[in-house]
Design a protein around this nucleic acid. Structure first.
Lengths: 331, 331
DNA sequence: ACCTCGTGAGAGAGCGCTCTCTCCACATCC
DNA sequence: GGATGTGGAGAGAGCGCTCTCTCACGAGGT
């Protein structure tokens, strides 16, 4: 009836529980014929180790919390980046036999719960996916005695190893691409300025324009489609003669394209548009979107490596990955 | 150094471990002043129960596996439905203090791992999100002695309680909408026919056309954008005079719109398009997509209730939720 | 005054596993 | 041949918790 225990396996194989445990854990100090007997018993009984009992004594849980901290405006079901990160993190962690415990941190209530949970030693480590600004979570988690890594540089100064892409460099490349194709009045739709990605991509934009003596035309969105739409309308009002826009993410770029269409502007003939992220939908806009790709899957893999490294006392240096310009038809 | 145990709390409060345990677990048979003393000790020590020790004795883990079984063509980072389901399931489960363990079932290797894991009693229950066809997973999981529920009716006949939306009824409503707006040659882009949603939506389409003596024009896709695009081109070749398309999901509808645009057809003037799902992007297509909405969040909530119900011997009847026509500009 | 009964608290077993410690058998060396 | 070393196996403690069983005590009935 009940699931078989190590005791049962040992009895069936005619050995002690300790020996059975050695076989299960792959220790080499077991004679071959005994090992065989135990393995046969395991198969016959369909034995599966009880993880609760195991972690009770080893003080490890072999599970990793994936903490997704979403802002009210940036729900992860809307933003394809979240799911890509979650998916590839799962793949990576499963490959090394770690369990993925998914935790949403939205309300303050869930924050408290989360902290208790993590402080309670239920997980061996935490991967923090917090895209939004003044998030108290990085600070709170770094105080706990649990290894924490972050996807994206935390917005607050806190000592958490992280993986990020080169937002400044990517934005610079995007704007340079617009300049080199002869555009003269290049506006930007920036992301929220309490987010690192928002800040850095704006910085990149400004760097290039400053160096080339063009003036900057800025509207600010919050990385959602809606806000991109609104920001584009704003820009057209501010400077009807603009001939290019660098949009800080693709979701907003989709909204911007819609506003441009409604305003009767042709893309790229009248206005060139470059986005950032290369989400899947970028291929399907009208026209297809030129954008900066960053390797989300590789970033996540690097993040997992970083965390696993911390367990064995490895380095905790940030990892910054480069971005790549993907030229389609919008610019 | 080490995390405080119940023993430590009991000692500090001057009671036995048993009494401290009673307080932690909210039993009422503890005198108020003793309860206060214990609670103070808990606060002072920052005590958090060790879940491994607890599950060892209670035989419960308070965690639920969210098994996402994705087909090679339908990766969940691409399909917004997956993330919506995952997100709302998390929210619902966290509300009742259950942990969410996310498991991806893609390769056969991960299947074996998954079965072992679930058979190992690491989770109290399983929520299966399997959109794709001949998935061996439902069958395999139903054999285990673990409560399992499914999002969407399993494609194979297996005794797993599930929650689904009324695919047949929804498709019927969509096609009736096209008919009532005067369309005469109504084609469909069906989903994969090894999937229940694919089958049922095609059935709904056929039902209405049969009753109204129109002939059906069918192309089959696999629920991806690409396939929608290809299927639309196919349909235009098969019947250049078609004046409406019912597309079995929005992702394919986005692809279909693209093909229509490339073929120089105006939507909805020349060809009306109705999708299914009401994903976020449906609002942002050109023109915005008329579609059948089904309440994913409510479905997920119902699914969670169904699973929690199974724990206490509740009913295991399937739940079917209605769909709703959302009229935008494409039809 | 005795007994019953209910209530609140403690003692202690035991959940299934790991891991140290111990022991035994046998090979090796002076 | 006795001391020493070595590889392989068992004994048993203990991880932190829950929960049953037991007991002490006081209220209420006879």
């Amino acid at each position: 009836m009940r699931r078989p225990t190590l005791e049962a396996v040992a009895a069936r194989a005619g050995v002690s529980r300790a020996t059975a445990s050695r076989v299960v854990n792959g220790q080499t100090t077991v004679a071959p014929h005994i090992r065989d007997a135990v393995e046969r018993a395991i198969d016959e009984l369909g034995y599966v180790p009880n993880s609760a009992a195991r972690s009770l004594v080893t003080q490890r849980t072999d599970s990793i919390a994936l903490v997704v901290s979403e802002s009210p405006t940036r729900v992860f079901s809307e933003d394809p980046l979240f799911s890509t990160v979650i998916r590839s993190a799962s793949v990576e962690l499963e490959a090394v036999n770690k369990q993925v415990v998914l935790m949403l941190a939205s309300s303050a209530k869930s924050h408290a719960r989360l902290e208790r949970y993590i402080a309670g030693g239920h997980v061996d480590g935490v991967m923090l996916i917090s895209m939004h600004g003044a998030d108290p979570l990085p600070t709170a988690l770094s105080r706990l005695r649990v290894p924490v890594v972050s996807y994206g540089r935390p917005a607050v100064p806190v000592d958490i190893p992280f993986v990020d892409n080169d937002n400044v460099g990517g934005a610079e490349a995007a704007v340079r691409h617009l300049l080199s194709s002869g555009r003269r009045r290049i506006a930007t739709i920036a992301g929220p300025l309490d987010m690192i990605a928002g800040q850095d991509r704006l910085t990149g934009y400004r760097n290039v324009l400053r160096d080339s003596d063009h003036r900057s035309i800025v509207a600010v969105g919050d990385f959602t489609r809606e806000s991109g739409s609104a920001a584009m309308r704003q820009l057209l009002r501010d400077d009807p003669a603009l001939d290019a826009v660098f949009v800080a993410n693709d979701l907003m770029a989709v909204g911007a394209l819609q506003s441009l269409r409604q305003a009767g502007r042709r893309v790229p003939d009248d206005v060139a548009v470059v986005g950032f992220d290369d989400i899947d939908a970028a291929k399907y806009t009208e026209p297809p979107l030129t954008t900066m790709r960053h390797p989300v899957t590789e970033q996540t893999a690097a993040l997992v490596r970083l965390l696993l490294g911390l367990f064995v006392g490895g380095p905790s240096d940030p990892v910054i990955l480069p971005t790549e310009l993907i030229v389609r038809e919008s610019a």
